[in-house]
Write a protein that binds this DNA or RNA. Structure first.
Lengths: 340, 340
DNA sequence: GAAATTTATGGTAACGTTTCCTTAATCGCT
DNA sequence: AGCGATTAAGGAAACGTTACCATAAATTTC
């Protein structure tokens, strides 16, 4: 069933059918109704390959996710996928390992799949201006932004102020009287921007409150790329507990790390929050259902997902780039307490 | 940069270039080397739209997931996506709401995206033989299988024996001395097969051990489709606790429901496993990191994901359908105990 | 050594759209 | 009435591949 068949059945030319389907050009109401009814009757859907071939442009969007197993991305992925599909844009969701350079993968994908746009969810510090130019299609960075020296006209970004939010969270722990505050994050070698920024927020909070930075209070656990955040947080916390018997609080880069850490803390016989306070980052639903519920820096995931789609479609329609920074919310749910 | 450009630059005809790229037909070594080097030099990738249009067949696979937010599907989705991509088959991952008939969505997707194959992850009871025939492309059902009366040649399936595994889990609770055993599952109206089968396993276990089935010990919570399993489990457990003060154990259809239930149980002041034992289903990682760690019927998600891909590619290459049933493993991690 | 087969290569018609270019009818103005 | 502008519709050339067909050289077969 092709457009030609529809044309024949409707008794009109193919270009007329095309015009009806795409709502372009001049078509009389009579003809429009006739064609529309035939299209509906035979349940005709235009062939996408032919459309894409002719138009030189597809409606394919790639969503590259740095660590797709992180539940924080789950909701965002779902929203992005759903809203794009609703507009007739299929989404290729793809996981990107921590080590991989996602923008190079995007370039490859663009070649392979004739992409019209890219959303990068979570990501690296390894962007280069040339890479953005080589990619050459509307690009939105979510949860991360590129180096300062890259022109802001080359991409849109949706994120929160990682440094500030981390600073606030650690400051909250300090306000509760904690001084030996552990920090758990991803292996720094990966250069993930938020990773670095939240670390800097942690250090600034200590510094501004007159607490000396102590490297033995910082831990990360990488292992194989397949390692989930939970187990990484668990191992990192074990390390911290072993090295710092007087540690009374922990701030983790992500909720999954924090929840893994909780398990290690509780397994060691310590209580949360009585012996050790802990704050995570992201605001995933799991944190609410753990016992005790996890305090966390909530990121407005839904809003950010919607904003990223809007930014992308705006760019697809020729609009400019935009750079939006959201505010996090420090949710106090029961995993922090004043120091004994 | 098209195949014609490559042909011109290599000094050969377009069909020769096509033959080189696709490794078909006769090509002399000299020509092959020449063309290959030009292709590499200009980083040429054949246009997929044109290929698909010409070949009438794509390499697009759709992965329809019933409730994509369930962490149990997370790992499977990732494996399927990764392995398919590795073979050059992009995957369209799509969420399907509980109410929706996924096979009809698959038919629509096939039309829209020219799919060559479909994997359904989790799913309905609403399959019909006509629907499978209308779909007409290799289809694999994972975690679920179609009604008995549908020809097994129309699809492949990868799953576990839901009824038996549920039976075993509930029997284990009975062996610990529990008699008032709650059951939490999805709203039965949705007719999700595993939902129904695990319920039947629950009932058979009671029956065979001489315990009368008590409908007030069964709860489900649907609400809006966006409700996550955690909150549904939480609400359902609250209901059970209110209705059955003597209930000493709970079996949940899924780990997310069980973890939500744990929160409700612990919030009510009861202890796990001292006051109430609980067993979930799936074996998601989250269950291990909750405190206490959740006992669960582990499904070999990785193996099942790999098996589903193999089944699909086998069918794509003209092979027949296959139907594999895996064994679950009852993991005892600390959320069950003999009745006081 | 001629015929048959294998190897090697190029030309070209599709695949199903969209879009430009025609052609033609209708309409609104002076 | 005549003319330009608007409305309406169709024909056909692309888009970038692949696959069939044709041709021809090299090789094998009897």
């Amino acid at each position: 069933m092709t457009i030609k068949d529809i044309a024949r059945l409707s008794g009109v030319g193919v270009s007329t059918v095309s015009r009806v389907i795409n709502n372009t050009g001049y078509v009389s109401d009579d003809v429009r109704n006739k064609v529309t009814s035939i299209v509906r009757e035979y349940n005709f859907t235009p062939n996408n390959s032919a459309r894409n071939l002719k138009g030189r442009t597809t409606k394919n969007i790639a969503l590259l996710v740095k660590g797709i197993t992180n539940p924080f991305f789950n909701k965002m992925i779902r929203i992005i996928e759903e809203k794009c599909a609703l507009r007739g844009y299929p989404v290729f969701i793809q996981n990107v390992d921590a080590q991989a350079n996602e923008i190079e993968i995007a370039i490859q994908e663009k070649r392979d799949r004739n992409l019209c746009g890219v959303i990068l969810l979570g990501g690296n510090f390894g962007y280069s201006e040339e890479a953005f130019k080589a990619l050459g299609i509307p690009t939105v960075l979510v949860t991360v932004s590129a180096n300062e020296d890259i022109s802001k006209d080359l991409y849109s970004s949706i994120k929160i102020d990682d440094e500030k939010e981390a600073y606030d969270a650690v400051s909250a722990l300090i306000a509760l009287g904690h001084e030996e505050i552990g920090f758990i994050y991803n292996p720094p070698g990966d250069q993930l921007t938020p990773n670095r920024l939240r670390f800097e927020g942690y250090k600034r909070a200590l510094e501004e409150h007159g607490i000396a930075f102590n490297p033995s209070l910082v831990a990360s656990y990488g292992g194989e790329p397949l390692h989930s955040g939970y187990i990484s947080g668990f191992r990192a916390a074990q390390e911290l507990l072993g090295r710092n018997p007087r540690m009374s609080a922990v701030f983790a880069f992500a909720d999954v790390l924090a929840l893994g850490a909780c398990k290690a803390i509780l397994s060691s016989g310590r209580r949360i929050p009585d012996d050790i306070s802990i704050i995570g980052f992201d605001g995933i639903e799991e944190g609410e259902f753990f016992t005790p519920s996890l305090d966390t820096v909530y990121q407005p995931a839904e809003e950010m997902a919607l904003a990223s789609i809007e930014a992308l479609f705006d760019m697809l329609q020729g609009g400019g780039t935009r750079h939006k920074i959201y505010n996090g919310v420090l949710l106090r749910r029961g995993s922090t307490k004043a120091r004994k």
